[in-house]
Simulated assay, not measured.
Amino acid sequence: MIQDIFPHRFQNQYDADAVPAASDIVLCYQESKVLIKAPHSLPTVSDFPQMSLRYLFRIDGTCYFTPEQTVEESASLIYQNVREMRGASEIPKFHRYAIMTGKHLADWYRDSRFCGRCGRALRHAAGQRAMICDSCKNHFYPRIMPAVIVGVIQREKDQILLTKYKTGISYYALVAGFTEIGETLEETVAREVLEETGLHVKNIRYYKSQPWGIANDILAGFFCEAEGDATIRMDASELKLAQWVNRKDVPLQPDDASLTNEMMQIFRDGKI
């Protein structure tokens, strides 16, 4: 998956004392796009002399920063869609992971300029990754949205339920959705499967998790079995396809970035 970057080491602790070096990486975002340096690399501090930068994290000995102002394209610096970066093999995997994780933090900084309680401007805390309101003393920390990925299995027919989203990526996927207020993850699994496909499930069991910075998520993967009538009643407002697929016929996504793809693969390979 995208976060599996060994032997490289990701260090997410906030470092208020980090001083940008010329070779450190600068991650610039415009909504869903990230700035790429032609042909297939990331810009460095040396590309932005005198620019005010905000520390994000480290990978190995390299620091990653994001600018505190908007950066425009140039002849050698082009914005590309972040989602397209997940499988861009010409860019090292640890850089692709940095792009996705950096977007999560950059989005939070972009959206945390003013206090949600009193409306006053926020300032960055001195020694931690937090935004502080000096007026009402409210503190804001990066927010992570929990969501589930669900592999629904029909044991008697040796099939798994695959879907395609109505919008967004065109790959085959699994049932997925965000956890609502007051829900357990297991309750989210049952609700999302029922809402999207009309199926009831049993034997819900946790598999693995994954950070997914593209959508500011932490994804929790679960497998379960269909219970009772296995007729699919698809929610056409969310999906354009939902179908049972035989184990040997499971199509995989074009890269190994996602938890969804790994769950599909271990079912196809008979490991679940």
Rank of each mutant, 00 (worst) to 15 (best):
T179C: 00
E180T: 00
G182I: 00
T184I: 01
E186H: 03
E187R: 07
T188N: 09
A190D: 08
A190P: 10
R191H: 06
E192Y: 01
V193N: 12
V193C: 07
V193Q: 13
L194E: 12
L194I: 01
E195T: 11
E195Y: 06
E196N: 13
E196Y: 09
T197S: 13
T197E: 13
T197I: 07
G198I: 12
H200K: 15
V201W: 05
N203S: 13
N203V: 05
I204D: 12
R205G: 08
Y206L: 05
Y207Q: 14
K208D: 15
S209P: 05
S209A: 07
P211R: 06
P211I: 09
G213T: 04
G213H: 10
G213I: 05
I214A: 13
I214D: 07
I214P: 00
N216R: 12
D217Y: 11
D217A: 10
I218C: 05
L219A: 05
L219P: 04
L219W: 04
G221Y: 02
F222L: 09
F222M: 10
F222A: 12
F223C: 08
C224T: 15
E225G: 04
E225R: 08
E225Y: 11
A226R: 14
G228D: 14
D229G: 14
A230Y: 12
A230P: 15
A230W: 13
M234W: 05
M234A: 07
A236K: 14
A236V: 09
S237N: 09
E238S: 10
L239M: 06
L239E: 04
L239A: 07
K240E: 11
K240P: 06
L241K: 11
A242P: 08
A242M: 04
Q243H: 10
W244T: 09
V245S: 07
V245H: 08
R247A: 02
D249K: 03
Q253E: 02
P254V: 01
D255H: 03
D255L: 01
D255A: 02
D255K: 01
D256A: 12
A257C: 11
S258N: 07
S258A: 14
T260E: 11
N261P: 04
Q265D: 11
Q265V: 02
I266S: 04
I266Y: 14
F267T: 02
F267C: 03
